[in-house]
Structure formats: structure tokens, C-alpha cells
Amino acid sequence: MIEPVQILIIHDDMSENDPLIITLKEKYGDENVKLEKRSSKGLSYIHNHLTSKLIVLLDFDLGQGEPHAPEVIEKIREETSLIYVIIITAKQFSSISHEALIKFINNEALGIIQSTADIKDVVSLVDKAAHELDTRVDCVLEQWIAKRPKEEREKPYLTTRSGETYTLDDLIIEIRKETELGQRMERGILQLAIEQLTNGDRQL
């Protein structure tokens, strides 16, 4: 079973029955769309789902005492760069401080959208994020692994020079956590794929 994309909405002024949430649930499955009104709780959810395929829809102002979007995205990036973040705001774009915008860009927000935008525009940004999640090395690898029999997945697949062994499932986690091994694997896989593509008989 391939892990589905999960969507976390961090918004202090949205209800569970909001049409945006209903539309997203319709498309991505009820159990895969979650609303968190407090950003601190949202952050701990993210912390516990670092290896999931996660898209975060993040409101800008999140109430007194709660970290606001620029801080939230910074905290997310301290842990992982694999989660896609889309900012939603009722603020006039021109009134967003430069510091906040710099934080969004430097911390790779996938998009920023006004709270009065059409649902379909928000959904299309989410779709874009979902597509990127699906075409990433870790996700494609996961799809491939998912097709292997259980015993193959559980047996050591790779042994490092220092003697540590990794199963296929372990490797996905290494890639998602962006460990040194994970990054090396990712590069290797891409290089190999390109070599295959250019050397082979050009059939996908």
C-alpha cells in the first residue's frame, strides 16, 4: 500500500465543515485532511509525521501566543525540507513585512494565496504540491518498494562501509530525513536513472 498524501491545515479561523476542507477531503480522502487551529499543535503534528508525504496549508496570523506563519515555516525547515508549505492570508500582500516574505522564500514556501481566493485555486496549488511529492525520488522509490514482497522489504538491502545495514524501508526514511546517506542514495538513484534512460533502448 503506497502512503497517501496528507494535508494539514493550520488555521485558527476555519471550521471543520469549511468548503475548502470538504473539497480537499473529497479529493484526498477524509482521513488524509486534518485541521489544526493552533500552530503549536500543528508543529507537533508535523514533528510526529516527518516521514509522511505531507502538505501544509498555513494561515498567516495564528492568534496571540501562537507562532505565526513566518516562524512556523522556519521551525518546519529546521526539521525537514520535504514538507510542502502553502501560505494562506487575509493580509494585503503589500502589507506583509519584507522580513516575513524573505522567510517564506528562504524557507521554500511553495505558494502564497489570498484567503479570498477561489477554492479551485487553492486546490490546484495543493495538487501541484501533491504532484511534486509523487515524483520525488523517495516517493517513487516507495512506490517501487510497495510492489516488492514483504520478505524482500525486510531483508538487509545495503551495508555501509561502517558495517550498518539498511532495509529498503530504512532507506526511504534516510532519504526523507536527508541524512548524509539519504542524500547520497538520492543522487545515486537519479544518476543511475538518467544513465539507464540515455544508454538503454529509450523505452520507458
Partner: peptide, 23 residues
């Protein structure tokens, strides 16, 4: 500043609901 934020948030809510009806 507060009010434009408030109006936009309220409009966003109304608009999403209306859009849902429309679709």
C-alpha cells in the same frame, strides 16, 4: 488594518460557501 483583515476573512468564508453552492 484590523478591519480590512476582518472584512477579507469574512468575505473569504462567504465566498468559499457560495463557490461550493455554485459548483
Amino acid at each position: 488594518i484590523h478591519i480590512s483583515h476582518a472584512v477579507r476573512t469574512a468575505l473569504g468564508k462567504v465566498k468559499r460557501r457560495a463557490e461550493f453552492f455554485k459548483d
